[in-house]
Amino acid sequence: MAEAAAVEIDRLSDLPDNILHHVLSFLDTVTIVKTSILSRRWRCLWKDVPVLCFQRKGFRSKLGFEEHVNRILANRSHHATVREIRLDYYSSGLSWEEPDAKVFDSVLRYAASSQSPGGMISRLHHLSIRNPPVFDSFYRRFTDVIASICTHRHHETLRTLNMHGVDVALVPMTAASGFQMLTTLQLRSCEFHDPDPFGGFPCLNHLKLFNCTSSPSGFAVLGPHLVDLEIDSPFLSVSDGLIRVSAPKLKSFRFEDQNLRSRGYPTLDLPALDHATIHFHWHEYLLVAPGCRSYVSREGSIRARLNLFGDLHNAESLILCFDSSTEITDQNSPLTEWKSPLMERAASPFTRLKALRMQFKKPSPTLSVPKEVIRYFFGDSFNPLNKSAIIENMDNPFIH
């Protein structure tokens, strides 16, 4: 009997509410609500979870999704604090009805008004808006995303902001008030048009830009408190040497380019840099032919690369990643292309470099690093006892 009683103990339900709320916060709101049927203990737990996670996936119409959101908001506890909102508009192609920003605004309004008797005192710390459908009229309305955040005063408490696929003007709407608490900003497939798009985020520590673009004149990242910056696969219009980065406290920098023979790289001013990762894509179909607007000669690409390495001269560790669709040997290695008079004559810009790692997607077991490349990165006094140059397989590190 004692053993049977022990089996029936529901240890999960015995946990305090705050721990159960934390567990539930990793789920989407539909799943969270379904836990109410488990037992009397779980019947009302979902109403106080401090996370709102709405996903349009699974709803066949815009109206069904809107009704679901409104029903959840109407039945939640109005005194419950909302600390995180995740809103994903991805609809699996089941409905191509033109969406609007009404759901987003109603969720932000609820998060503000439900947290105090008088309303408008935000406790929202994390906000994620993903996959808005690609309709021009939607974009025109959804450029008010920052305005909506500021209207409900969430800009005063937000610490992380993640936006995916939003055409949004950041600075004009944030310059006056600013996101004073925001430390982490991630933009994916977003477009901005101001030359200083991050001026409204004075305390930013971590910035990640994926597949973002801007006006043809490029943009600047001026971050007095930035310590970590990632720029992955910028569109061609902003990869022509038109990205300027000035961050006196930056420790880690990562840049990914879709073409090893790029016409240009970001201009960097990083006096406190410790670690840098540069990811090149080495695919024959990406090497455009002479005559094309994007064509860059071998000499031009090497000059651009030397300028980039010159800007990384403070780094103590450097990772160079080469993503290739074919096996890399000494004959077709991108490192072999670097054995040019330009690089041979160039003095090493690195003053603190101790570790160099070269990662290849498909390296040959006999692949080696040319001595000219070693000399460029470590100077003439290379000593493997206190400095290292390692070839790695991206899928299987340290094969050598």
Results as ranks from 00 to 15, higher is better:
Leu335Glu: 08
Leu312Ser: 08
His275Leu: 01
Pro370Gly: 04
Gln55Leu: 07
Thr143Asp: 12
Thr183Ala: 10
Asp232Gly: 11
Asp240Lys: 13
Trp42Pro: 07
Val171Ser: 15
Val23Ala: 11
Tyr376Cys: 06
Arg244Asn: 09
Ala4Gln: 15
Cys292Thr: 15
Pro266Glu: 06
Ser91Gln: 03
Arg130Asn: 08
Gly291Asn: 02
Lys339Met: 12
Val166Cys: 12
Pro290Arg: 09
Gly178Arg: 05
Tyr376Phe: 12
Val296Thr: 15
Pro365Met: 01
Asn383Cys: 06
Glu67Ile: 02
Lys361Ile: 01
Ser177Pro: 07
Asn18Ile: 08
Val49Ala: 07
His206Cys: 10
Pro117Gly: 05
His279Phe: 14
His154Cys: 10
Leu342Val: 10
Pro197Leu: 01
Asp269Ser: 13
Leu185Trp: 11
Ser114His: 13
Cys321Trp: 06
Asp194Cys: 13
Pro248Ser: 00
Ser39Glu: 08
Ile129Val: 11
Glu66Phe: 02
Pro202Gly: 04
Tyr90His: 07
Leu242Cys: 12
Trp96Phe: 09
Lys57His: 11
Ser148Glu: 09
Asn259Met: 13
Leu318Val: 00
Ile72Leu: 05
Glu191Thr: 15
Val166Thr: 14
Glu392His: 04
Thr157Cys: 08
Ile129Ala: 09
Pro172Phe: 04
Gln258Glu: 11
Thr143Leu: 08
Glu98Phe: 00
Ile85Pro: 14
Asn131Leu: 05
Phe142Trp: 15
Arg60Phe: 09
Glu191Gln: 14
Met358Cys: 01
Leu161Trp: 00
Leu342Phe: 06
Gly264Met: 10
Ser189Gln: 15
Val168Glu: 05
